[in-house]
Nucleic acid binder design. Structure first.
Length: 274
DNA sequence: ATAGGCGCCTGCTGGC
DNA sequence: TGCCAGCAGGCGCCTA
């Protein structure tokens, strides 16, 4: 499930392969992604040179000089640079041929929860994020911002962390891992946190995300980086997917509950309600 | 304000 | 052995 660390890894992997390269040709599969590809986009993209590739939350931003390609990997999206002679895998939906024809940028998405869209300039990309209420990057969210987000809310912490309008980039894995790191019960309400606990949570999120980026993200099933290589952070999970396994801190079996409609993993001893 | 449910989509797993 | 329900969870949308 590509979350911030996975998307960051993809962007870092792709950057040296893409920047300064020309997108010569675009091929599109018949199956639609969350948003269907407009034929006009192919015409606008063909011949463009990639000025930069970056990330905002879980969104990948491909600056093509004037137009911007904005990509979301959904649940099973893969955005990779591969040798053009390699046969495309099933569920490959977009193929961009790079200038020399030796290498292709491919978008593959088994479940097609991903989306790709084109904006005519940087300002329209920004408008899109503003319209969606996309929150700040986790390291941009300071103590005052967290206070404003948490102090009055009756939502539980799990729901708050998953809300992209609060902070951008956290999904189910890193929400659970951050709450374990902060020793906070995921069902606690935002308004129940003391200033000290708010700060603990804020720092835990940043720490967990940085550790995950250093390990190139988590590969449970489908995720791979921009170079096609799997991540390693799944070997570091403390609670996510560890139901019944001993807590790494106190050996109490990890429990699974459902919060905010998502499976939620926590240690009942280390992460108490109080 | 917030919770809960549905739909989108495929592949894997576990129970019978 | 084969079949099918259930699950995984990103986001957007709807209703209560």
């Amino acid at each position: 499930m590509p979350e911030l660390p996975e998307v960051e890894t993809v962007v870092r992997d792709l950057r040296p392969h893409l920047v300064g390269r020309r997108l010569a040709r675009v091929r599109v599969s018949r199956k639609a992604l969350r948003r269907k590809w407009s034929p006009a986009w192919s015409r606008q993209i063909q011949g463009r040179i990639v000025a930069n590739i970056d990330r905002r939350g879980k969104w990948i931003l491909l600056d093509l000089g004037a137009p911007w390609l904005v990509v979301h990997l959904g649940m099973t999206g893969q955005f990779t640079v591969v040798n053009a002679r390699q046969r495309p895998q099933p569920h490959t939906h977009l193929i961009f041929t790079l200038d020399d024809g030796q290498v292709e940028l491919r978008f593959r998405d088994i479940r097609r929860f991903g989306s790709v869209r084109l904006f005519q300039d940087r300002g329209l990309v920004e408008d899109f994020f503003i319209a969606g209420g996309l929150g700040p990057e986790p390291w941009q969210a300071d103590a005052e911002y967290w206070r404003d987000c948490l102090k009055h809310t009756r939502r539980c912490l799990k729901a708050v962390l998953l809300d992209q309008r609060v902070i951008a980039g956290v999904g189910n894995i890193y929400a659970d891992e951050s709450l374990f790191e902060a020793r906070l019960f995921p069902g606690l309400l935002g308004k129940e946190l003391t200033p000290t606990k708010r700060e603990t949570l804020r720092q835990a999120i940043v720490m967990v995300l940085e550790r995950a980026i250093a390990r190139r993200g988590s590969s449970i099933r489908d995720y791979v980086g921009g170079d096609g290589a799997r991540g390693n952070y799944q070997d570091e999970f403390r609670v996510y997917g560890q139901t019944g396994q001993p807590c790494p801190r106190c050996r109490t079996p990890i429990q699974r509950i459902v919060l905010a409609g998502r499976s939620t993993h926590f240690c009942p001893r280390c992460q108490k309600r109080t």
